[in-house]
């Protein structure tokens, strides 16, 4: 069994109790774990699996099926580009390549090396009237341009230095 610190154990015990009392299931358990830790740590899944006698493969099967779950820690800043149809026809592809270039992300990477910024894509945010849309640290920016996005990214990286 993977090591779990007492502090973490307390947190996951709370989640587990909620699961037993309410009408929980593996998805809600993972949703709560992600809410608490920001991602799904392997040792947490291992702990749940032993406690509940549910194979780990079931947890990971679900975690990898749904787009919401992350198996790796995420950046301190999160930038989300909407890839809905309206955003697509209004130039979201350009925004995506700008962000990847500015953040120096290669291939499937979504988080910068220093763990500062995670850049992700989402199917549709449903705010198509403001297309193209980018969310930067939970704030929605409509009618985004490549220049504006590059500027926003620079201001985050600068603030860190």
């Amino acid at each position: 069994m993977l090591e779990v610190s007492p502090e973490i154990e307390k947190k996951i015990n709370d989640i587990l109790n909620k699961y037993i009392e309410g009408e929980g299931n593996v998805i809600s358990l993972l949703q709560d774990a992600q809410e608490t830790f920001g991602y799904i740590p392997e040792n947490v899944v291992d702990w749940f699996s032993k406690k509940l006698d549910i194979p780990e493969s079931r947890f990971f099967g679900i975690a990898t099926f749904y787009a919401q779950f992350h198996l790796k820690p995420r950046g301190k800043n999160i930038i989300t580009a909407c890839c809905g149809t309206a955003c697509h026809v209004k130039g979201s592809e350009k925004l995506i390549s700008t962000a990847s270039r500015e953040l120096n992300l290669k291939g499937d990477e979504d988080t910068t090396e220093d763990g500062e910024i995670t850049f992700e894509k989402v199917a549709c945010l449903g705010t198509c009237s403001m297309a193209p849309v980018v969310i930067i640290n939970k704030k929605m920016h409509g009618k985004m341009t490549t220049e504006k996005l590059a500027r926003e990214i620079k201001s985050i990286t600068k603030a860190k230095k």
Binding site: G84, A86, C124, G126
Partner: peptide
Amino acid sequence: DEGDPGAFMDR
């Protein structure tokens, strides 16, 4: 579970 990109009436 309004998933169609480009539809937001349910929301």
